[in-house]
Amino acid sequence: MVDNLLPLRVDDLVVSRRGKRLLGPVSHTFAPQGLTLVIGPNGAGKTTFLKALHGIERISGGTLTWNTPPEDARQRQSYVFQSPTMLRRSVRDNLAYPLWVAGVDKALIRTRCDRWGARINLSDAMDRPAPLLSGGERQKLAIARALISDPDVLFLDEPCANLDGQATADIERMLTETQATGTRVIMTSHNLGQIRRLATDFLFVLSGHIHEVGPAAQLHTPATPELAAFLQGDLL
């Protein structure tokens, strides 16, 4: 039985670049279950926060404490970037890549890729170069590539930006299914409808600080005027 990755405790996390504080200090505890939406206006520090949690943004202060040792924690999370990188390879080889990195057996890689290719409706495109896929297809491929290694935590940075209704619905279904299998999801979104549909809880980030935190229900009754304004689509 492997240890649970979560809860994740964040204490006084600070990220500074060139003498400028981009984030923090922020403190928060991510509960073992749920789908957390990190929301806030452009430039608030959402991407910085997610990257810092994932461990790919150098932190200038504070601590991140997973329930397991850091190296182990790192192996069990995946991250989907705001603009996903497509390796200059076929769709199949993009799916296979994280498994190759982890040293998974070839036959197993093949069956898993077939399964995930079918799941994102790209079975017929497995041998096409991934960089030539449409925006929506790329986004789905990036999510499948993140999920193929069965992570315990999945970070997504605006997975549905610039996608149409159908593609967004497909991705939301994948995320709901993922969460149902016990994967912890932490994501950002600017789509108010999507925030309300998916969130079990939220973090509202404003100018590098956590301004308001609460369960999804609180999105209907915001505690701060800033969140109320943000949810009405007002400029902050």
Binding site: H54, I56, R74, Q75, F81, T85, L87, Y97, P98, V101
Partner: peptide
């Protein structure tokens, strides 16, 4: 182009160069 993804996936230096 690859930096963030390869770092995120915990690739070793040899794996990065091979990729």
């Amino acid at each position: 182009e690859y930096h963030d993804l390869l770092i995120s996936l915990n690739t070793t230096r040899t794996q990065r160069i091979r990729t």
